[in-house]
Structures are given as C-alpha cells and as structure tokens.
Design a protein around this nucleic acid. Structure first.
Length: 271
DNA sequence: CCGGACGCCTGTCGGC
DNA sequence: TGCCGACAGGCGTCCG
C-alpha cells in the first residue's frame, strides 16, 4: 500500500506524539508478519526513549536512545497514535505504549509489513544498505537515472519501481510520473534519452511532493498517523482510471499488466 | 548479471 | 444469496 508519500505522511503524523517519549510496554499480538517479529522485542524496547523518527524509502526509522526500530508497512499496513486504553481490533498486531499513555498501534491485515530492531547504524541494516538514492534528496537526477539505465532492457516502469535504483516509488506514483513525462511504461529503460530522464526525475519529485502535501493517496483504507485519509487521489491522472478520458487529450486510459503490476497510461500522450 | 515469475496474506468486488 | 476467481499501495527469492 504505502509508497513514499504515505510513509512520509505517517512519519509526520506520529512524530510529534512519540519523539522524546519513553516506552513503557510493548504488546505483540501477532508475530507472523513478512518476517517473524523478534521474540525479544518487548523486552528490548521497554524503557527505551524515542529520539527521532526518520524515513528511508518506505521504511520508518524510530531511533532510540539505544538502537533503532525499523518498520515497513507492506501493502496494507498503517500506524496510528491513540490514547492507551483503546480496545484492539482484528489485525492490530502491535502496540507500543509510552509512559504518558500514548499508544502507537500497527495494523496490517495482509501482514506484508515487518518490524526489525537493530543495535547498530540502521542505514547499514541488510534491508536498507542496498537501497538507491532518495528521490527527494541529493544524488537523484535524470543524469543518474540515465546512467543507471544504460543497456537495460527491462521496462522503464519496472526500472523506476526498483528500490535499488530509486527508493520509495511504487505503482501509483510510477504510473503518474511516466504520464507527466509522456513516456510509455513499457519502453525499455535503456532506450530513454537523457532529456526525457531529466523530465522524469523532475516529475517523480513533483508528484511525490504534491502527494505529501495532500497527505498521501487513500484508495481504500490508508490513514496517516492521526487517522486522517489522504487527498491525492483527486489529482491522479492515470492510476485506477482505466477507460476514463485522459485529462489532456480525452482518449480512454488503457490498463494492462507490466511485471505482474497493473499499469495505466494514455496511448496518445505516452510514447 | 539480468529480468521475469512466484509466493506471502486478507479483504473486496464483479460475474454467474 | 452464495460461491469463485481476479485483483489490491511491496518485495525477497528463485530460476532460466
């Protein structure tokens, strides 16, 4: 579910409630997530203080006074801040309760999300070490993409969704950025010219920033850290708009699968 | 090395 | 109604 804008929205929603707070207890109701929740998690976290809440790609980093908690929301995960005695519903797998009776609750019906604790530098963690540049940070540009794509035959869409290339771009925003740059999603990544990669890099940034401003995209059930939906859906040009008229040329938006993922594009505007 | 397919899960929706 | 298949915001792993 959550791509970079939704994870960033979650980060901004939970941060003011938990930064500087000390963890009193942790309740794990379901250990079977994408990877098993560490058995010692509750013991490890009790008494720790959250110093900062950061993000790397689609991972949230809760930096503690000792170690760091990594959270990934998978397809259906969400985090929410609640007053401590709030009854848990189905799929509420984890509660982190702070000494001021604030509860940080993880809900994840499909259980594709994961939780990891690391003692050392989180950016060195196995799952983060190989990630590509942040699309909103330094080191990400059209020149970089063009260089990385050299000789690649895979589709441009699969290419920009590869977290080793650039992190945080998922199915919604890949479709949207390619539309904005007029690039057909099936075009081989190695056959996109530098000028078009410059446009694409700018549009990836632009669409992610705009989505963050709107609090992310809520398709069915995404909510930010304070339970609010995101409003970027209104601005989607192609994603989930099969057969609807292109906002530029009015031709019907096409949908078909690229690398097992639904892809949406305008045959008229994208080449 | 690269690229594509496959699972992992539950919930929802459309068709019959 | 109910059943069944397809599909859903991700990604590590396996195989050719």
């Amino acid at each position: 579910m959550p791509e970079l804008p939704e994870v960033e929205t979650t980060r901004r929603g939970i941060r003011p409630h938990i930064e500087g707070r000390t963890i009193r207890t942790v309740t794990v109701r379901e250990r079977r997530l994408r990877w098993p929740v560490p058995r010692a998690l509750a013991r490890t976290l009790a008494g720790r203080c959250v110093t900062t809440v950061d993000r790397r790609g689609k991972y949230l980093l809760l930096r503690l006074d000792a170690g760091c908690l990594l959270l990934h929301l998978g397809m259906s995960g969400s985090l929410r801040v609640l007053p401590a005695p709030t009854p848990a519903a189905k799929h509420d797998h984890l509660d982190i309760i702070f000494e001021n009776d604030t509860c940080l609750r993880l809900r994840d019906p499909r259980r594709f999300g994961s939780i990891h604790y690391t003692r050392g530098d989180p950016l060195r963690h196995k799952l983060l070490a190989g990630l590509g540049p942040e699309p909103l940070g330094e080191g990400f540009s059209g020149d970089y993409l063009h260089r990385a794509a050299r000789g690649r035959k895979q589709s441009i869409k699969t290419f920009i969704m590869d977290s080793c290339i650039v992190t945080g771009v998922g199915n919604i925003y890949a479709n949207e950025a390619l539309f904005l740059s007029g690039i057909h999603p099936k075009r081989p990544a190695g056959r996109v010219a530098l000028a078009r990669y410059r446009s694409l890099a700018e549009n990836i940034r632009a669409v992610l920033l705009r989505a963050i401003e709107e609090g992310g995209t809520t398709l069915r059930d995404f909510t930010g850290g304070e339970g609010q939906p995101g409003y970027f859906r209104i601005h989607l040009n192609v994603y989930d708009r099969a057969e609807q008229p292109c906002r530029v040329c009015a031709a019907p938006i096409r949908q078909h699968r690229i690398g097992q993922r639904s892809s949406f594009y305008c045959v008229n505007c994208q080449h």
